[in-house]
């Protein structure tokens, strides 16, 4: 019962925050609404027994990415750009297309018999977690290619040990490239402005 109450609280906050991002016009309020949405998504992850993903969501997404985003908002949202209004026609079309799109997805989701996907297996992550109820160890093992959930999963059919070490390394190199790229973009901007002011003078 507790889980259900918590689910509905987090679900309403997550969905409401997402709708708030679309409806609100003030960019700072939008950012706050996004924080609520992503933060309560972390709560949903906790309910789904994915505590490591939830903690990562809080640490990287809410604590890192969104702070960066708000930083961008504060640097650019001066005066007139804080609210950029849409015309009422755009709003109407956007709402209509969005509703149509959502109803399409919703009908699909409700129509599909998801129970068949489950097969005869018990919920997997519950089996994969150790006695402390944490998935961190299982995820760590999974990264190096040891599936802690082989007895219930589709990995048995594959037979191979497919770890995620290579993708992990690729992602880390990718992050490094992004770091250099973002620093370069920020730097190029400063040179350009100094050149521009030099040209004006």
């Amino acid at each position: 019962m507790n889980d259900q109450v918590l689910f509905w609280i987090f679900a309403i906050l997550a969905g409401g925050g997402a709708i708030g991002v679309v409806i609100l016009q003030d960019i700072v309020r939008m950012a706050f609404s996004l924080i609520i949405s992503l933060g309560s998504t972390a709560g949903l992850f906790f309910l789904l027994d994915a505590d490591f993903v939830a903690a990562t969501q809080l640490l990287v997404y809410v604590g890192g990415t969104l702070v960066l985003l708000i930083f961008g908002v504060m640097l650019t949202a001066s005066g007139p750009f804080r609210r950029i209004q849409m015309s009422s026609g755009e709003t109407f079309v956007g709402a209509a297309v969005g509703l149509l799109f959502f109803s399409m997805i919703a009908f699909t989701v409700i129509d599909v018999e998801w129970e068949t996907l489950k097969g005869s297996h018990s919920p997997v992550t519950a089996a994969a977690t150790d006695e402390t109820g944490s998935t961190s160890r299982a995820i760590g093992l999974r990264l190096v290619g040891i599936a802690a959930d082989t007895e219930v999963g589709i990995h048995k059919d594959r037979g191979e040990k497919t770890g995620y070490l290579l993708p992990f390394e690729i992602v880390s190199v990718h992050l490094l490239v992004v770091l250099v790229g973002a620093a370069y973009l920020a730097r190029a901007k400063r040179q350009e402005t100094s050149e521009a002011t030099g040209g004006d003078a």
């Binding site: 789904l48 027994d49 994915a50 490591f52 993903v53 990562t56 969501q57 990287v60 997404y61 890192g64 990415t65 960066l68 985003l69 998801w114 996907l117 489950k118 097969g119 297996h121 919920p123 997997v124 992550t125 994969a128 998935t135 299982a138 995820i139 999974r142 990264l143 599936a147 802690a148 959930d149 219930v152 999963g153 589709i154 990995h155 995620y164 993708p167 992602v171 990718h174 992050l175 992004v178 770091l179 790229g181 973002a182 973009l185």
Partner: peptide
Amino acid sequence: SRHTSLGLDGQIVSLFVIVLAAAEAAV
């Protein structure tokens, strides 16, 4: 990942998505 037999793969993919979203936001 929780409700089907996909296992932890779903969680790991979502971890990658989170990290890549951070990279995308920075650029």
